[in-house]
Design a protein around this nucleic acid. Sequence first.
DNA 1: CGGTATCCAATAAGATACTG
DNA 2: CAGTATCTTATTGGATACCG
Lengths: 119, 119
Amino acid sequence: MTTDAFLADCRARLAFDLLSHTWNAVVLWALRDGPRRPVELRERIGGISSKVLTETLRRLQSNGLVERRAHPGSPPRVDYRLTPLGRTLLAPIDAVGAWAFEHGDEVMEAREAAECPSE
Amino acid sequence: MTTDAFLADCRARLAFDLLSHTWNAVVLWALRDGPRRPVELRERIGGISSKVLTETLRRLQSNGLVERRAHPGSPPRVDYRLTPLGRTLLAPIDAVGAWAFEHGDEVMEAREAAECPSE
DNA sequence: CGGTATCCAATAAGATACTG
DNA sequence: CAGTATCTTATTGGATACCG
């Protein structure tokens, strides 16, 4: 794949769209071990509101990455799980995560150096 | 790396921060073959304004991923190149790009199905 | 509990015009 | 050519309260 093809291909932009929403990758990752209920996801992720979690899940759903299952009864019980397609995205996410794990410190240093150039 | 560690680690969020800006990955990719001048980048990428390109480059610069070099003289001549750190990010970006190349169609289908559920 | 409805603040990014 | 300065629009995501 050449650079130009990469840049021109709408599908490439598409993938960046997916990762360019703050919570998408995090939620996908939180679902990697199996179905999870919203309350579990919120505990697991931390710092995400009910509204934003729902929005994120809807977005992932409408992109075919996540499946929603409602179990009848009261109180309501719902869970979300990765679709086969969603599961294929874990590897690229993992690659990014591994990079962050390995090089995060360097980025942090560069950031601090850039923010306080006079110190 | 466990899921919880991944989610809690600020460095992971950091990587997603990097990819969550629309143009970051695209510009990094456009620099993969070597130094490029802003005008070349704009041609190569397409659809990016001078202002947004500059902002993106500054952002990448302050994260230690890109280096700016100004050549003296008039008219002004500047080029940008990947730092060694920036170069290490190409592989994860490539993983995402490859995924998009392989599964983009499926996402597109899912999107269309979600947008027009009654058809 | 799961989800929605508002309201609000921050910001990304496009368009345009301008400086050196 | 490289970069900046405005201005405007759209979107994100946070807070809160509420419904079934």
